[in-house]
Design a protein around this nucleic acid. Structure first.
Lengths: 128, 128
DNA sequence: TGCCAAAGTTACGTAAAAGTCAATTTTCGG
DNA sequence: CCGAAAATTGACTTTTACGTAACTTTGGCA
Protein backbone atom coordinates (compact mmCIF):
# COMPACT_ATOMS: atom_id res chain seq x y z
CA UNK A 1 0.00 0.00 0.00
CA UNK A 2 1.26 3.47 -0.95
CA UNK A 3 2.16 5.91 1.74
CA UNK A 4 0.70 9.03 0.14
CA UNK A 5 -1.63 10.10 -2.63
CA UNK A 6 -1.73 13.52 -4.26
CA UNK A 7 -4.96 15.43 -4.46
CA UNK A 8 -5.34 14.87 -8.19
CA UNK A 9 -4.79 11.14 -7.81
CA UNK A 10 -7.80 11.00 -5.53
CA UNK A 11 -9.93 13.24 -7.72
CA UNK A 12 -9.28 10.85 -10.61
CA UNK A 13 -9.89 7.73 -8.58
CA UNK A 14 -13.19 8.96 -7.17
CA UNK A 15 -14.38 11.26 -9.94
CA UNK A 16 -14.58 14.34 -7.75
CA UNK A 17 -12.92 17.77 -7.93
CA UNK A 18 -10.08 19.24 -5.91
CA UNK A 19 -12.59 21.80 -4.72
CA UNK A 20 -14.64 19.00 -3.22
CA UNK A 21 -11.71 17.49 -1.35
CA UNK A 22 -10.66 20.89 0.00
CA UNK A 23 -14.26 21.52 0.98
CA UNK A 24 -14.35 18.26 2.91
CA UNK A 25 -11.18 19.31 4.68
CA UNK A 26 -12.68 22.70 5.55
CA UNK A 27 -15.69 20.86 6.91
CA UNK A 28 -13.45 18.76 9.12
CA UNK A 29 -14.20 15.45 7.43
CA UNK A 30 -10.61 14.75 6.42
CA UNK A 31 -7.26 16.01 7.65
CA UNK A 32 -4.54 15.20 5.15
CA UNK A 33 -1.01 15.97 6.30
CA UNK A 34 1.03 18.69 4.63
CA UNK A 35 4.40 18.95 3.08
CA UNK A 36 4.75 22.72 2.95
CA UNK A 37 1.29 23.76 1.82
CA UNK A 38 0.70 20.72 -0.33
CA UNK A 39 -1.75 18.17 0.95
CA UNK A 40 -0.63 14.56 1.23
CA UNK A 41 -3.38 11.99 1.57
CA UNK A 42 -2.61 8.83 3.51
CA UNK A 43 -4.43 5.54 2.97
CA UNK A 44 -6.58 6.38 5.99
CA UNK A 45 -7.60 9.67 4.35
CA UNK A 46 -8.39 7.82 1.16
CA UNK A 47 -10.58 5.39 3.07
CA UNK A 48 -12.37 8.28 4.72
CA UNK A 49 -13.12 9.72 1.29
CA UNK A 50 -14.66 6.38 0.33
CA UNK A 51 -16.83 6.48 3.43
CA UNK A 52 -17.86 10.07 2.74
CA UNK A 53 -18.91 9.27 -0.82
CA UNK A 54 -20.83 6.24 0.41
CA UNK A 55 -22.67 8.54 2.79
CA UNK A 56 -23.39 10.95 -0.02
CA UNK A 57 -24.86 8.21 -2.19
CA UNK A 58 -27.20 7.39 0.69
CA UNK A 59 -28.37 11.00 0.87
CA UNK A 60 -26.64 11.99 4.09
CA UNK A 61 -25.68 15.64 4.48
CA UNK A 62 -22.15 16.75 5.28
CA UNK A 63 -23.16 17.29 8.90
CA UNK A 64 -24.60 13.78 9.15
CA UNK A 65 -21.54 12.29 7.49
CA UNK A 66 -19.36 14.13 9.97
CA UNK A 67 -21.36 12.52 12.77
CA UNK A 68 -21.00 9.10 11.18
CA UNK A 69 -17.27 9.21 10.54
CA UNK A 70 -16.76 10.36 14.10
CA UNK A 71 -18.32 7.07 15.16
CA UNK A 72 -15.63 5.24 13.24
CA UNK A 73 -12.86 6.84 15.23
CA UNK A 74 -11.01 5.30 18.12
CA UNK A 75 -13.31 4.95 21.10
CA UNK A 76 -12.73 7.55 23.84
CA UNK A 77 -11.74 6.68 27.38
CA UNK A 78 -14.74 7.99 29.23
CA UNK A 79 -17.71 5.81 30.09
CA UNK A 80 -20.38 8.45 29.46
CA UNK A 81 -18.98 9.28 26.04
CA UNK A 82 -18.72 5.63 25.11
CA UNK A 83 -22.34 4.99 25.99
CA UNK A 84 -23.40 8.06 24.05
CA UNK A 85 -21.55 6.87 20.98
CA UNK A 86 -23.17 3.46 21.26
CA UNK A 87 -26.57 5.15 21.37
CA UNK A 88 -25.80 7.25 18.32
CA UNK A 89 -24.60 4.18 16.46
CA UNK A 90 -27.88 2.42 17.17
CA UNK A 91 -29.77 5.49 15.94
CA UNK A 92 -27.86 5.58 12.70
CA UNK A 93 -28.32 1.86 12.23
CA UNK A 94 -32.06 2.24 12.56
CA UNK A 95 -31.98 5.04 10.02
CA UNK A 96 -30.06 2.80 7.67
CA UNK A 97 -32.53 -0.03 8.17
CA UNK A 98 -35.31 2.41 7.23
CA UNK A 99 -33.45 3.30 4.07
CA UNK A 100 -33.09 -0.39 3.34
CA UNK A 101 -36.83 -0.87 3.70
CA UNK A 102 -37.34 2.11 1.39
CA UNK A 103 -35.08 0.47 -1.15
CA UNK A 104 -36.93 -2.85 -0.99
CA UNK A 105 -40.27 -1.11 -1.47
CA UNK A 106 -39.01 0.96 -4.35
CA UNK A 107 -37.49 -2.05 -6.07
CA UNK A 108 -40.75 -3.95 -5.59
CA UNK A 109 -42.75 -1.16 -7.20
CA UNK A 110 -40.27 -0.91 -10.04
CA UNK A 111 -40.58 -4.67 -10.57
CA UNK A 112 -44.35 -4.33 -10.76
CA UNK A 113 -44.05 -1.47 -13.24
CA UNK A 114 -41.67 -3.45 -15.37
CA UNK A 115 -44.03 -6.41 -15.43
CA UNK A 116 -46.78 -4.08 -16.57
CA UNK A 117 -44.56 -2.91 -19.41
CA UNK A 118 -43.61 -6.45 -20.39
CA UNK A 119 -47.27 -7.50 -20.47
CA UNK A 120 -48.11 -4.48 -22.56
CA UNK A 121 -45.36 -5.44 -24.97
CA UNK A 122 -46.75 -8.95 -25.15
CA UNK A 123 -50.19 -7.58 -25.99
CA UNK A 124 -48.58 -5.67 -28.81
CA UNK A 125 -47.11 -8.92 -30.08
CA UNK A 126 -43.52 -8.32 -29.05
CA UNK A 127 -41.66 -11.42 -27.97
CA UNK A 128 -39.79 -11.09 -24.67
CA UNK B 1 -60.63 4.70 2.24
CA UNK B 2 -61.36 8.45 2.26
CA UNK B 3 -62.03 10.19 -0.97
CA UNK B 4 -60.12 13.39 -0.23
CA UNK B 5 -57.54 14.80 2.16
CA UNK B 6 -56.90 18.48 2.84
CA UNK B 7 -53.44 19.87 2.53
CA UNK B 8 -52.98 20.23 6.28
CA UNK B 9 -54.07 16.67 6.89
CA UNK B 10 -51.22 15.52 4.70
CA UNK B 11 -48.71 17.93 6.24
CA UNK B 12 -49.55 16.49 9.64
CA UNK B 13 -49.47 12.90 8.51
CA UNK B 14 -46.10 13.25 6.81
CA UNK B 15 -44.49 15.97 8.88
CA UNK B 16 -43.95 18.34 5.98
CA UNK B 17 -45.12 21.89 5.25
CA UNK B 18 -47.77 23.15 2.90
CA UNK B 19 -45.00 24.94 1.08
CA UNK B 20 -43.39 21.60 0.38
CA UNK B 21 -46.58 20.10 -1.05
CA UNK B 22 -47.16 23.12 -3.24
CA UNK B 23 -43.56 22.96 -4.33
CA UNK B 24 -44.02 19.33 -5.35
CA UNK B 25 -47.09 20.36 -7.31
CA UNK B 26 -45.17 23.15 -9.06
CA UNK B 27 -42.50 20.59 -9.89
CA UNK B 28 -45.12 18.35 -11.48
CA UNK B 29 -44.78 15.50 -9.00
CA UNK B 30 -48.37 15.62 -7.81
CA UNK B 31 -51.57 17.03 -9.33
CA UNK B 32 -54.27 17.28 -6.70
CA UNK B 33 -57.70 18.24 -8.00
CA UNK B 34 -59.30 21.56 -7.06
CA UNK B 35 -62.56 22.63 -5.61
CA UNK B 36 -62.42 26.31 -6.43
CA UNK B 37 -58.83 27.12 -5.63
CA UNK B 38 -58.51 24.68 -2.77
CA UNK B 39 -56.48 21.57 -3.37
CA UNK B 40 -58.08 18.21 -2.71
CA UNK B 41 -55.72 15.28 -2.40
CA UNK B 42 -56.99 11.88 -3.45
CA UNK B 43 -55.60 8.61 -2.11
CA UNK B 44 -53.50 8.34 -5.24
CA UNK B 45 -51.97 11.75 -4.51
CA UNK B 46 -51.32 10.69 -0.95
CA UNK B 47 -49.59 7.56 -2.15
CA UNK B 48 -47.47 9.64 -4.50
CA UNK B 49 -46.40 11.78 -1.57
CA UNK B 50 -45.32 8.62 0.22
CA UNK B 51 -43.27 7.59 -2.79
CA UNK B 52 -41.73 11.05 -3.04
CA UNK B 53 -40.68 11.04 0.60
CA UNK B 54 -39.26 7.56 0.21
CA UNK B 55 -37.19 8.85 -2.67
CA UNK B 56 -36.05 11.80 -0.59
CA UNK B 57 -34.91 9.55 2.23
CA UNK B 58 -32.83 7.67 -0.30
CA UNK B 59 -31.16 10.88 -1.43
CA UNK B 60 -32.81 11.22 -4.82
CA UNK B 61 -33.27 14.74 -6.17
CA UNK B 62 -36.65 16.08 -7.24
CA UNK B 63 -35.67 15.51 -10.86
CA UNK B 64 -34.75 11.90 -10.17
CA UNK B 65 -37.94 11.35 -8.21
CA UNK B 66 -39.90 12.78 -11.11
CA UNK B 67 -38.24 10.21 -13.36
CA UNK B 68 -39.00 7.41 -10.93
CA UNK B 69 -42.67 8.20 -10.38
CA UNK B 70 -43.11 8.45 -14.13
CA UNK B 71 -42.04 4.82 -14.28
CA UNK B 72 -44.91 3.94 -11.95
CA UNK B 73 -47.49 5.35 -14.33
CA UNK B 74 -49.60 3.34 -16.74
CA UNK B 75 -47.43 1.91 -19.50
CA UNK B 76 -47.71 3.75 -22.82
CA UNK B 77 -48.89 2.15 -26.04
CA UNK B 78 -45.79 2.47 -28.11
CA UNK B 79 -43.18 -0.25 -28.31
CA UNK B 80 -40.15 2.06 -28.37
CA UNK B 81 -41.32 3.95 -25.33
CA UNK B 82 -42.07 0.74 -23.46
CA UNK B 83 -38.60 -0.61 -24.10
CA UNK B 84 -37.08 2.68 -23.02
CA UNK B 85 -39.00 2.61 -19.77
CA UNK B 86 -37.87 -0.95 -19.10
CA UNK B 87 -34.28 0.15 -19.61
CA UNK B 88 -34.68 3.07 -17.25
CA UNK B 89 -36.24 0.80 -14.65
CA UNK B 90 -33.26 -1.53 -14.82
CA UNK B 91 -30.92 1.46 -14.43
CA UNK B 92 -32.71 2.68 -11.34
CA UNK B 93 -32.79 -0.83 -9.90
CA UNK B 94 -29.03 -1.08 -10.27
CA UNK B 95 -28.64 2.29 -8.56
CA UNK B 96 -30.81 1.03 -5.71
CA UNK B 97 -28.77 -2.14 -5.42
CA UNK B 98 -25.64 0.02 -5.11
CA UNK B 99 -27.31 1.98 -2.33
CA UNK B 100 -28.17 -1.29 -0.65
CA UNK B 101 -24.54 -2.38 -0.79
CA UNK B 102 -23.56 1.00 0.66
CA UNK B 103 -25.99 0.44 3.50
CA UNK B 104 -24.65 -3.03 4.26
CA UNK B 105 -21.09 -1.74 4.33
CA UNK B 106 -21.99 1.20 6.54
CA UNK B 107 -23.89 -1.01 8.97
CA UNK B 108 -20.95 -3.41 9.08
CA UNK B 109 -18.55 -0.61 9.95
CA UNK B 110 -20.92 0.73 12.57
CA UNK B 111 -21.15 -2.75 14.07
CA UNK B 112 -17.37 -2.91 14.26
CA UNK B 113 -17.22 0.52 15.88
CA UNK B 114 -19.83 -0.47 18.40
CA UNK B 115 -17.91 -3.59 19.30
CA UNK B 116 -14.84 -1.48 19.87
CA UNK B 117 -16.84 0.72 22.22
CA UNK B 118 -18.27 -2.27 24.08
CA UNK B 119 -14.80 -3.77 24.52
CA UNK B 120 -13.51 -0.46 25.76
CA UNK B 121 -16.34 -0.34 28.28
CA UNK B 122 -15.47 -3.85 29.42
CA UNK B 123 -11.85 -2.78 29.92
CA UNK B 124 -13.13 0.00 32.10
CA UNK B 125 -15.01 -2.55 34.15
CA UNK B 126 -18.51 -1.76 32.93
CA UNK B 127 -20.82 -4.74 32.66
CA UNK B 128 -22.69 -4.98 29.38
C1' DT C 1 18.44 28.89 -12.19
C1' DG C 2 14.56 29.52 -14.83
C1' DC C 3 10.26 27.57 -16.06
C1' DC C 4 5.83 25.41 -15.88
C1' DA C 5 2.46 22.26 -14.32
C1' DA C 6 0.35 21.21 -10.21
C1' DA C 7 -1.19 22.85 -5.89
C1' DG C 8 -2.73 26.47 -3.01
C1' DT C 9 -5.75 30.49 -1.27
C1' DT C 10 -9.48 33.83 -1.43
C1' DA C 11 -13.66 35.25 -2.76
C1' DC C 12 -17.76 35.42 -5.26
C1' DG C 13 -21.49 32.69 -7.82
C1' DT C 14 -25.18 29.23 -8.15
C1' DA C 15 -28.72 25.46 -8.25
C1' DA C 16 -31.81 22.80 -5.40
C1' DA C 17 -35.22 22.54 -1.96
C1' DA C 18 -37.53 24.39 0.68
C1' DG C 19 -38.51 28.36 4.74
C1' DT C 20 -40.63 32.68 5.68
C1' DC C 21 -43.50 36.62 5.23
C1' DA C 22 -47.24 39.38 3.46
C1' DA C 23 -51.43 40.11 1.38
C1' DT C 24 -55.62 38.16 -0.11
C1' DT C 25 -59.38 34.66 -0.42
C1' DT C 26 -62.10 30.96 0.88
C1' DT C 27 -64.45 28.02 3.68
C1' DC C 28 -67.37 26.68 7.20
C1' DG C 29 -69.56 26.21 11.76
C1' DG C 30 -72.74 28.72 14.72
C1' DC D 1 -74.72 35.79 7.09
C1' DC D 2 -70.40 36.48 9.50
C1' DG D 3 -66.00 36.12 11.57
C1' DA D 4 -62.24 33.03 12.75
C1' DA D 5 -59.53 29.49 10.80
C1' DA D 6 -57.63 27.64 6.84
C1' DA D 7 -55.94 28.07 2.15
C1' DT D 8 -53.89 30.48 -1.80
C1' DT D 9 -50.47 33.15 -4.34
C1' DG D 10 -46.18 35.63 -4.88
C1' DA D 11 -41.96 37.35 -3.58
C1' DC D 12 -37.98 37.15 -1.13
C1' DT D 13 -34.55 34.55 1.92
C1' DT D 14 -31.77 30.71 3.45
C1' DT D 15 -28.85 26.63 3.56
C1' DT D 16 -26.07 23.16 1.44
C1' DA D 17 -22.51 21.66 -1.48
C1' DC D 18 -19.92 22.66 -4.22
C1' DG D 19 -18.41 25.54 -9.20
C1' DT D 20 -15.72 29.10 -11.00
C1' DA D 21 -12.62 32.70 -11.51
C1' DA D 22 -8.33 35.13 -10.44
C1' DC D 23 -4.16 35.12 -8.62
C1' DT D 24 -0.09 33.18 -5.93
C1' DT D 25 3.08 29.52 -4.45
C1' DT D 26 5.87 25.60 -5.00
C1' DG D 27 8.60 21.86 -6.33
C1' DG D 28 10.82 19.09 -9.74
C1' DC D 29 13.82 19.11 -13.55
C1' DA D 30 16.18 20.57 -18.15
Amino acid sequence: MREFYTITELTREFGISTRTLRFYEDEGLISPVRRGRTRLFRPADRHLVKQILRGKRLGFSIAEIRDIVQMYRDPPGEVGQLKQIINKIEEKREELRQKRRDIEETIAELNASEEGCVERLAELGVKG
